[in-house]
Structures are given as C-alpha cells and as structure tokens.
Design a binder for these strands. Structure first.
Lengths: 106, 106
DNA sequence: GGCTATAGGTAGCCACGCTATGTATATGAC
DNA sequence: GTCATATACATAGCGTGGCTACCTATAGCC
C-alpha cells in the first residue's frame, strides 16, 4: 500500500478502534493491524503524533496508568470524538464511492 | 470532502478517465467532475502539475493541438500507464476494504 | 550479557494537493 | 465597445502530515 494513501484517513481509523473501548497507543497499533488483516503496520512515529493531534483537537482524552512496571497513556474517545467519527465515516462513504465511481468505469 | 483525502489517489483517477479516450487537461477536470456527480472540482493547480508528473513517470504522452483558436495539450495513456492504472486499481481495492473493515465495526 | 516484546516519545524530511496569480482567446450580454 | 464568463494552459510557494530515524526504558528469556 502506497505511503500517503492514508493521508486524511488515519484519524478516522484511530477514532474507530477507540469506539468500543479505550486503548493505549501500542494497543491501537496492534488493533489496527489485527482489524486490517495485517495490512496496516503503522510506525509509532505515525501513530503517537496523530494521537497528540486528536487529543489537542478535543477528540480524545488521555490518562496515565502503570501496568506491569510499564507506563501507559490510555486514550478515551470524547463526545466530540464520537461526533467527529460519525462525520468522518460519512465523508469516507462519499469519498470511496466517488473513487469507486471514477475507477469503476472500465 | 477534506483536502488531502485525495493524497495518493489522484493519479489513479486521472489515469482512469484517460483509459477510454485521450483528453486535454481542462477536459480531464470536467470529466472528473461529471463522473463524480460534481463531488470533484479540482483546481488547475492540482491537475496540471499532476499531469506533468504522470508524463515524467512515463504513464502519459502529450501532444499539442489547436482547436478554435485555443491551444490544447492532449494526454494519451501509454502502455506503462495502463499497467500503472491496473496496479493502482488493485491497491485501491485493498485500501478501501481495509478502511471499510476498520470503520465498519460498529 | 544480549535479544525480543512492550511502551513511550521527538526531530526533521519531503511529496503533493492547494491557493494565488498570471497569460490568452472566444462568445454573448448590455 | 466593454464586461463577464467559459475555455485553456501554467507556475511559485505554502502547509501538512505520514514517514524515517532515532532515543529512552522495563520485563522476560536464553
């Protein structure tokens, strides 16, 4: 998969995996890999800054915890985050059907 | 639609509209608008540089023509361009099903 | 000691879509 | 006759965000 295919779509993916349950950064990377059948193997340099951005935008809240001697920052979806997720899901629908439509006319 | 949702997908769209027939730049913009139901209204500052890149990459060939006093640069899909299109269609399938998969688990 | 997995982070690169701006011709309204 | 609009091409420069590369630290196993 080309590198910047993800541009503008990563936020939606992160919000989506946090929809059911709060997760810490490392677990988010694993969840994305799992849910994508191994297709998504995102580097920490991609995900951590994205989480910071999403928190700064008010879509996520984070709290520190310690588990097994290791520190974890756990991210929780805020109300605004849920709204943003709904909006981005709708935008994805539009976008993907546009691309399908253009590519599909063989 | 968010600005850089298109990142990494524009090339495939352009190659796709040139699959059936050669078109000049302005006509490509109109074809994309038409095929997307008006959803895509790309500025020339997006499309013309993209066409140059695609030509430089060997995916397109261009020839000048004059129609009604106006100069047109008409772009034709090369053999390499057809291969690139096929590849990018496949990549889009993977990408879109990955995103659908992650977003779809409500 | 050394390796892997787990867990967090930042600095800086760079590709590329977009804004803004410029050029030029044809057509029709007024 | 001039103004707006559509047609047609082009480039300079901005901004952004995913990526590479790097750093820190603990736990567990060999």
């Amino acid at each position: 998969m080309k590198a910047d295919a993800l541009r503008g779509h990563l936020d939606a993916l992160i919000l989506a995996v946090l929809e059911k349950e709060p997760l810490h950064g490392y677990a988010i990377i694993e969840a994305l890999s799992l849910r994508s059948g191994g297709e998504l193997d995102l580097p920490t340099g991609t995900v951590y800054p994205a989480l910071r951005r999403l928190e700064a935008a008010g879509h996520l809240k984070s709290t520190w915890a310690t588990a097994g001697g290791r520190k974890r920052r756990t991210y929780t979806l805020s109300a605004g985050g849920r709204r943003a997720l709904a909006k981005q899901r709708a935008e994805w629908q539009v976008f993907s059907s546009v691309v399908d439509g253009v590519l599909g006319e063989a």
